[in-house]
Computed example of a mutant assay.
Amino acid sequence: MSARLLRVEADGGSRGNPGPAGYGALVKDAATGEVLAEVAESIGRATNNVAEYRGLLAGLRAAAEIDPSARVEVRMDSKLVVEQMSGRWQVKHADMRRLAEEARAVLPADRVDYGWIPRAQNSHADRLANEAMDAAAAGRPWQRSTGGPAAAAGPAPAGPAAPAGSAPAAGEPLELVLVRHASTPLTEQRRLSGRHGEDPELSEAGREEARRVARCAEVRGADVVVSSTLRRCRQTAEVIAEHVGAPVLLDPQWDETDFGDWDGCTTAEVVRRWPAEFAAWSADPAVAPPGGEPLVAVERRVRDAASALRARWAGKRVVLVTHGDPLRALLRECLGCGAGAQRRIRVDPGSRTLLRLHGDGSSEVVAVNRV
Rank of each mutant, 00 (worst) to 15 (best):
H358I: 02
P326I: 04
D255P: 01
R4P: 06
F259N: 02
E52F: 08
H181N: 15
P289D: 05
L327Y: 02
E73C: 09
V219G: 13
P160F: 06
E204F: 02
G292M: 03
R104C: 06
A164C: 06
L107T: 06
R356C: 03
G340P: 10
D255Y: 02
G139A: 11
R15K: 09
A62W: 09
D134P: 07
R300T: 05
P118R: 10
N49A: 04
V319M: 10
W313F: 12
K79V: 14
R61G: 01
V39I: 08
E41D: 14
G147T: 06
T353P: 09
R191Y: 05
G361K: 12
L335K: 01
V270L: 12
E208H: 12
R343E: 14
R7F: 09
R54A: 15
G336E: 13
R300A: 15
S86P: 09
E299R: 13
K79N: 11
V347M: 10
R352V: 14
E41T: 07
L331T: 12
R61P: 01
H243Y: 06
P285K: 05
E83M: 14
E101D: 15
S166R: 15
A152Y: 00
M76Q: 09
A268P: 08
Q84D: 14
V74I: 13
T267S: 06
E333Y: 04
